[in-house]
Design a protein around this nucleic acid. Structure first.
Ligand SMILES: NC(=O)c1ccc[n+]([C@@H]2O[C@H](COP(=O)([O-])OP(=O)(O)OC[C@H]3O[C@@H](n4cnc5c(N)ncnc54)[C@H](O)[C@@H]3O)[C@@H](O)[C@H]2O)c1
Ligand SMILES: NC(=O)c1ccc[n+]([C@@H]2O[C@H](COP(=O)([O-])OP(=O)(O)OC[C@H]3O[C@@H](n4cnc5c(N)ncnc54)[C@H](O)[C@@H]3O)[C@@H](O)[C@H]2O)c1
Lengths: 227, 227
DNA sequence: GGAATAACGATATTTAATTATCGATATATT
DNA sequence: AATATATCGATAATTAAATATCGTTATTCC
């Protein structure tokens, strides 16, 4: 129940997986065991227990973990109990998809404003947002104080847009452009690198490159039995 | 120069980063050192050398690595010298963005056909593709033999679509839906989990959660000096 | 009520990945 | 030509992550 001190990045990335799995459970399920979670998600049971322990969950021998309590612990841990605001720059194909994506609200994020430098787009309504001109970025951010800046412009433009966001006081950048961004050390950049994923996929096609989430021997048979 | 035996997943995911960095270099740059690459990308120089050694690169003391040779080694390693084909299911917001995305060709991937179950979309042209009806999926895949199936349908529909793709002989699934897919053990699923990214971002906003690509002490000052 | 057992939670081990150290090398400088 | 030095490449040390082991617990079944 105590607030966890430090959760490893790998564990942190698996937590949403548990959330979506718990949501998929029948309404009347009271308890779920780490064994069952692990079997369904292709993970190791010990890993699941360690992950859940990291957010302060505690289970009962022979029964497992209380589903609703677990869900509450995970979701409050993940969004920290607060809603976060974001702005998005680059309302092209990807920007529109992200802006239209309702999944964000569910994870505690709200896109407050969207920007583009294309005069044909500025002023129009896309995915429910009025596209702002770039000149408005710094002043608007100074009032909205968004926690995150989402970059979905072509790679060549990304650094410039990033500099603007930093200048506007944004401390966390979510970068979808396939390029590395230089930022001051108090700003963090998270790259959403599709090329990195493609690299893994290519190797999976070619040889038997070990997958990023290896499946333990025991679980393989379980998963195989599903289909 | 010898073909590398086994490249770790983490290294594999960093290789495209080097490619894009090398492309950003001035045309007349003959050599680049691991020190310089590391400083620019916020990595550790030893890590860069190990990564490059993994694809068979060898450098020269005092000079570094030959840029063009390095690029050739990396790109041929990454796409294995061959072009890979894919089909995409779910031509909604995200599906269209991916289908329209020209970056894939650059990494050796070609989307050959796209599918949707919305009767209003089937038959129409989107992002240069004629949207196919779902009934065509299995027969078309049997002739096209795509290496990868891309899933961009809502989470509730993903398992059904996945089963169809597997039935059609697809062995590698690239899943953008926020749900875990059960597959036979000769099929691999790669999840593109946006929720996992959001989990990291939230922690970066809240406290000082260690970032996924930690920056070593020495590099911080260098990066700081850029802006 | 008592034995059998499924699952937890703590600790230990193993494996993977990153970072440090250092001798060797070839270039630039004097 | 000799020397200083930046960088490589190999090996070693460290750190992080995953997995194994096992005693404890509380439920279920008899
Ligand atoms: N489409 C995808 O599926 C996909 C996937 C992964 C990554 N990406 C990357 O995301 C980025 C966007 O991709 P896309 O397909 O949406 O491209 P796009 O061309 O459809 O959209 C880019 C948008 O950015 C705007 N823009 C350009 N320069 C700008 C600037 N300086 N300031 C503000 N706005 C600017 C353009 O007007 C356009 O609306 C690219 O870097 C791409 O590589 C795209
Ligand atoms: N939009 C984003 O930025 C984004 C980001 C990350 C993940 N995702 C995920 O990607 C998926 C698609 O997102 P989206 O925003 O494009 O949604 P969307 O509703 O715009 O598109 C979904 C498409 O799938 C089609 N579809 C539904 N059921 C189908 C079926 N059984 N067979 C074939 N086609 C079917 C629909 O007709 C629709 O065209 C979702 O799972 C979403 O959570 C979206």
């Amino acid at each position: 129940m105590l607030p966890p001190h430090l959760v490893s990045p790998r564990t942190l990335q698996r937590l949403p997986l548990y959330v979506s799995y718990l949501h998929s459970l029948p309404k009347d399920a009271l308890y779920i065991s780490s064994t069952e979670i692990a079997a369904q998600l292709g993970l190791h049971p010990v890993q699941v227990r360690k992950d859940l322990a990291a957010v302060g969950a505690q289970g009962r021998p022979r029964l497992g973990f209380e589903v609703q309590t677990l869900l509450r612990l995970l979701t409050t841990y993940l969004n920290g109990g607060t809603q976060h605001s974001a702005v998005l720059v680059g309302m092209g194909h990807l920007g529109r998809a992200l802006a239209a994506h309702l999944g964000f609200a569910h994870y505690g994020f709200t896109i407050q404003a969207v920007f583009d430098n294309d005069q044909n787009l500025v002023g129009s309504r896309l995915a429910g947002y009025e596209v702002q001109k770039m000149e408005n970025l710094v002043p608007l951010c100074q009032t909205l104080k968004p926690a995150v800046g989402i970059i979905t412009v072509p790679a060549e433009e990304a650094q410039g847009v990033c500099d603007l966001l930093v200048q506007a006081g944004v401390r966390v950048i979510w970068n979808f452009a396939p390029t590395h961004l230089a930022v001051p050390k108090d700003v963090t950049v998270q790259d959403e690198d599709i090329a990195a994923s493609l690299a893994l996929i290519t190797k999976q096609i070619l040889g038997q490159q070990p997958s990023l989430v290896p499946i333990s021997r025991k679980e393989e048979s379980v998963r195989d039995g599903i289909l």
